[in-house]
Design a protein around this nucleic acid. Sequence first.
DNA 1: CGTCAAATTGACAAGGCTCAAGTGCCGTGG
DNA 2: CCACGGCACTTGAGCCTTGTCAATTTGACG
Lengths: 209, 209
Amino acid sequence: MRTQRLKAGASVVTEGQLVSECGVLISGYACRHKVAKDGGRQIVSFHVPGDLLDMQHLWLETADHNVQVITDANVAFVPVTALRQLVEDHPALGVALWRDSLLDASVFREWVLNVGRRDAKTRIAHMLCEFVARSEAAGLGGPSDQVIPMTQEHIGDATGLTPVHVNRMLRTLREEGALKGSGRDLQVADWKCLKQSAEFRGDYLHLAA
Amino acid sequence: MRTQRLKAGASVVTEGQLVSECGVLISGYACRHKVAKDGGRQIVSFHVPGDLLDMQHLWLETADHNVQVITDANVAFVPVTALRQLVEDHPALGVALWRDSLLDASVFREWVLNVGRRDAKTRIAHMLCEFVARSEAAGLGGPSDQVIPMTQEHIGDATGLTPVHVNRMLRTLREEGALKGSGRDLQVADWKCLKQSAEFRGDYLHLAA
DNA sequence: CGTCAAATTGACAAGGCTCAAGTGCCGTGG
DNA sequence: CCACGGCACTTGAGCCTTGTCAATTTGACG
C-alpha cells in the first residue's frame, strides 16, 4: 500500500485503463465521471474522506469511468492482489466491501432518478443534501459546519445542467434561505429548508445500519 | 426456493419493504424503478431472462426501489439465508455474485450519463442498444431477431422523457432506418445505424470477460 | 361489436441552453 | 506593494428542445 498526495484536479483512474490498485480517499474530495461523445462530462458520484474510490476494480480489471480529485487530496492505493487475499482470509471484510459496493449502486440509482425526473432546483438541492448527509456520516460535522467544496461547474456536471443554470438556481435557493455564502464559499443555511426543496429522504443511503 | 408465475405489470418488490428473498428472472422481462415525490416514475434498469433481480437484498434488508415485471414472467425466489450459506460454502460463487452486482453498478453509471448528458434521440437509441446487447448476451438471439417488449411509456420512464416525445423520436429513428415496425412491434432494422445514433460502446457492460 | 390500453399527431407553452458581456477573487511576478 | 492574468461566478437576452394538453387512431381481446 502506498499513499499519494494529489493536487486539485488530478486524475486517479482513467476510463479504459487496466487497474491493479484500489484507491481509498484519505483526505480531500473526489468525484467519478464519464464523458459523452460530444465531450459533455457527467459526474456520477462525489466522495468524502474515508470513501473507497474504485472498489469495483477488485473484480473488474478495466475502468469504465474516470476518478478525479476535486480538491488537494491524499489517496491510499491498495494492490488488488493484496485485497483479494485479505477478502479470502477474512470473509467478514469481504461482506463489508461487498455491502459497500451495493450502497454505491443504491446511490447511482438515486442519481438516475435525480437527473431523470427532478427539475433543476430540486435536482441541485438533492445533490447537495446527499453530499452533506454523507459528509456528516463520515464525521465531518453537521450540515451547517460544512463548506461545499465543488465549483458550480462540478454541480452542473453532476446534475446534467449548464453552469449558467446552476448559478441561477443557487441564487434562488439562497433567496429562499436554504443556502448562504456566494461564490466559492457555499454553505447550508437551513438544513430543513434545503431538504424540503430537495424532496430529500436519505433512506437510499442505508446509513441506519 | 420457490418459483412464481407473474402477470405483466405485477410487482415483485416494493420500496421500503423488508426483503428476505432474492428474485431471479426465469422468463419474461422486468424493470426496477423509483418514484419521485410528484409521482414521476424513473426506471433504473431493465432485465432479461436469467438476470438476478435484487441481489442487493443479500446484504441490505430494506428495498430502496421497486421491481416489477413488464411482461408475463416467471420468477424464482431464493431465501436470503440460503444464499448466504451458499456464498459462505462456495467463495467462488460469492465472487461471481459480487462481480454481478458490480456490473449492475456499472450499468447504473452509464444510465446517469445517458439521462444526464445525451439528447432525446441518442438517449432512446442508447437505451435500446443496451437492452438488445444484453438480450443477445443472454442468448436471446441477435439484434434483428428480437422484438422490444416495452411500451413507449416504459421507454419514457427509463429515459426521463414523456411518452409523447418518445413517440416522436422513435418515428425519427424509424425514418432514419435504425428501427422498424410500429406500435407494439418495435424491432431493430439496422444495428449498426442504431449504435451510431446511440453513440453506443458496450465496454461498460464488461461482457468480454 | 365494444372496450381499453397504447400509439400517434398537432398546436402551443416553458424550462433550460446558448451566446455574450461583465465582475470579483486570488496568486504571481515585476 | 501593486498590476496583471486567469478562473470562477454572475447576469441578461433570445432561442430551442422537450413538455403539456388534447384529440384521434390503432390493435388486442373478450
